[in-house]
C-alpha cells in the first residue's frame, strides 16, 4: 500500500472538473432548453419571412454574461468561511480553491464554445453572416455629421470567450474571497453609480466600456491589450481571494 500523501494536483484538477461538471448539469440543461427555444423561435420566424439569421451581435455580451453567473453555481453549498467540506480533503487549501476555479472555467469555455458554435451554425445554415455589418452616423470635433459603415472584425467572435473568462475570474474572486459576495457586489455597484454622479455629472456611464480598457475597441492590438490587462487583473484577484484560505 502506498504511503498517504497529499493528493497530486493533476488528480485534484481532474476530479474537480468531473465534480463541478456534475454540479452544473441541471443548470446547463435548463440553459440549453432556453437557448434551443429562443433560437428555434427566432430561426423559424426569420426563415418564415425568408430572411437569413445573422450571428446576433448582442449575443456576445449575453454569452459572456455566463461567466459572471457561473461562480455562484460552482461554489454553491461550499461554506468557505465556515468549515467547508473542501478543506477536510488532503490538498493545500489555496491550491484547492484555484483548482476548483480552473475546473469551472473549463466548463465555462465548453459552454461558451457550444453556444457560439450553435449560433454560428444557425447563421451559416440559414445563409446569414457571422460578423455584423452596421451603418450609423458619427459627429467629429467640429460637429459635422458623417455616415459610416461598420463591419465587426472577425476576431470579435473571440469576445464571448474573453468576456466570459474575465467576468468569471472577477466574480470568482468575489465569491471565494468574501463572506457575503452579493452584498459587496450590490454595494459596489451602488457606490460606483454615486461616485460617477458626484465626480462628474456629465460622464456617461457607458464611457467605462470604451477604449483603452473597455469592451468596445477599435482594433486587434487594443483589444488584445485590454483583454490581457483584464485577465491578469482577474487572475490576480482570484489568487488574492484564494490566499485568504491558505494553510497555516
Amino acid at each position: 500500500m502506498s504511503r498517504p500523501r497529499p493528493t497530486p494536483l493533476v488528480a485534484v484538477l481532474s476530479e474537480q472538473v468531473r465534480a463541478v461538471g456534475l454540479s452544473l448539469r441541471p443548470g446547463a440543461a435548463l440553459l440549453a432548453a432556453v437557448l434551443a427555444l429562443v433560437t428555434g423561435v427566432g430561426a423559424s420566424t426569420a426563415l418564415g419571412a425568408g430572411q437569413p439569421l445573422d450571428f446576433p451581435d448582442e449575443a456576445r455580451l449575453l454569452i459572456g454574461a455566463l461567466g459572471f453567473l457561473l461562480p455562484f453555481a460552482v461554489w454553491r453549498g461550499e461554506k468557505l468561511f465556515a468549515g467547508a467540506w473542501l478543506w477536510t480533503l488532503p490538498v493545500e487549501r489555496r491550491t484547492h480553491v484555484l483548482a476548483k476555479v480552473a475546473a469551472g472555467w473549463v466548463w465555462l469555455m465548453l459552454a461558451v464554445g457550444l453556444v457560439v458554435a450553435w449560433l454560428a451554425g444557425l447563421a451559416l445554415g440559414t445563409g446569414g453572416e457571422l460578423v455584423a455589418t452596421a451603418t450609423g452616423t458619427i459627429a467629429d470635433a467640429h460637429g459635422r455629421i458623417t455616415a459610416v459603415r461598420w463591419t465587426e472584425p472577425a476576431w470579435g467572435l473571440a469576445a464571448p470567450f474573453t468576456i466570459a473568462t474575465i467576468g468569471y475570474l472577477v466574480v470568482s474572486a468575489l465569491v471565494v474571497g468574501l463572506k457575503r459576495p452579493l452584498w459587496w457586489i450590490a454595494g459596489g455597484f451602488l457606490a460606483a453609480c454615486v461616485l460617477i454622479e458626484v465626480l462628474d455629472a456629465d460622464l456617461p456611464p457607458a464611457r467605462v466600456l470604451l477604449a483603452p480598457f473597455g469592451f468596445v475597441l477599435p482594433n486587434l492590438a487594443w483589444w488584445a491589450a485590454a483583454t490581457a490587462a483584464w485577465t491578469s487583473l482577474g487572475l490576480l484577484a482570484v489568487w488574492l481571494a484564494a490566499s485568504r484560505h491558505r494553510e497555516g
Partner: peptide, 26 residues
Amino acid sequence: PRTSGPEVRARTGYVPEGAGGAYGWM
C-alpha cells in the same frame, strides 16, 4: 498541522461534527 495540513489530512480519517457539509446534490 499548521505547516503540513494536507499531509496530516492524508493520513487521518475525520468525522466532522454535525451532519452538514458534504455536497447535498451528490
